[in-house]
Simulated assay, not measured.
Amino acid sequence: MRPAFSTLLMSTLLLASLSAEAGTLYGGTWVPTGCGAKPAAPQLDLKDPDAFNRSVSGVNTYRQAIRTYLDCLVQEANADIQTVTKSASAAQQAAKDANDKIQADVKAADEKFK
């Protein structure tokens, strides 16, 4: 295999293997795909002290759930950033390799057709 093609193939395979964990862009907004639904913030019930006290447990549950969700979101975002960076670098290297091959072929042609 030519170096440029193999570099491109490897970067494509890497991206495909990591895409199961990758987030998705929707209208310019990045959304994680492996973290489940974002927990909805509860409303405190301010009717009376008993209702308020009962609703506080929902807030505590939410705080734990949102912490877990945000940890997952950050981990997935960082993995996506690394994947995009590696893919862009691989594409740049593939283009450089192709250009180097062209230059070598031009040089060889120069020598051959003098």
Results as ranks from 00 to 15, higher is better:
residue 111 E to R: 06
residue 55 S to P: 04
residue 114 K to Y: 06
residue 53 N to A: 15
residue 68 T to V: 14
residue 106 V to N: 11
residue 43 Q to M: 10
residue 3 P to G: 07
residue 41 A to V: 08
residue 106 V to K: 06
residue 59 V to F: 15
residue 104 A to C: 00
residue 39 P to N: 01
residue 1 M to C: 03
residue 95 A to R: 09
residue 40 A to G: 06
residue 60 N to W: 12
residue 67 R to V: 14
residue 94 A to P: 02
residue 36 G to W: 04
residue 28 G to P: 07
residue 11 S to A: 15
residue 58 G to C: 00
residue 8 L to W: 07
residue 41 A to Q: 14
residue 67 R to T: 15
residue 47 K to H: 05
residue 64 Q to L: 11
residue 111 E to W: 05
residue 15 L to A: 15
residue 91 A to V: 09
residue 88 A to S: 01
residue 56 V to R: 04
residue 30 W to L: 04
residue 7 T to Y: 03
residue 84 V to G: 00
residue 113 F to T: 10
residue 94 A to L: 06
residue 80 D to W: 01
residue 71 D to R: 11
residue 96 K to M: 09
residue 100 D to V: 07
residue 4 A to M: 03
residue 21 E to M: 11
residue 98 A to H: 09
residue 93 Q to G: 06
residue 69 Y to W: 14
residue 31 V to D: 01
residue 32 P to Q: 03
residue 83 T to G: 01
residue 32 P to V: 00
residue 88 A to C: 00
residue 73 L to F: 15
residue 110 D to I: 02
residue 82 Q to R: 13
residue 38 K to M: 10
residue 15 L to M: 10
residue 42 P to N: 06
residue 106 V to Q: 09
residue 19 S to Y: 10
residue 10 M to N: 05
residue 54 R to V: 13
residue 82 Q to P: 02
residue 1 M to W: 11
residue 64 Q to P: 03
residue 64 Q to A: 12
residue 111 E to G: 01
residue 5 F to E: 14
residue 9 L to G: 07
residue 31 V to W: 08
residue 73 L to E: 15
residue 13 L to T: 10
residue 66 I to D: 11
residue 11 S to G: 10
residue 105 D to F: 03
residue 93 Q to P: 00
residue 42 P to L: 04
residue 24 T to V: 08
residue 96 K to Y: 10
residue 101 K to H: 09
residue 85 T to R: 13
residue 28 G to Y: 08
residue 8 L to I: 00
residue 86 K to T: 06
residue 37 A to W: 03
residue 48 D to Y: 05
residue 55 S to L: 04
residue 39 P to T: 00
residue 61 T to I: 13
residue 49 P to K: 02
residue 10 M to C: 05
residue 14 L to C: 04
residue 6 S to M: 14
residue 63 R to K: 15
residue 80 D to I: 01
residue 49 P to D: 02
residue 27 G to Y: 01
residue 70 L to E: 14
residue 44 L to P: 01
residue 54 R to L: 10
residue 20 A to G: 15
residue 14 L to F: 12
residue 100 D to Y: 07
residue 16 A to L: 12
residue 9 L to D: 05
residue 52 F to H: 08
residue 19 S to F: 13
residue 93 Q to E: 06
residue 20 A to L: 13
residue 7 T to N: 05
residue 58 G to R: 07
residue 73 L to H: 14
residue 60 N to K: 12
residue 74 V to F: 06
residue 89 S to H: 06
residue 54 R to I: 05
residue 6 S to Q: 12
residue 33 T to Y: 07
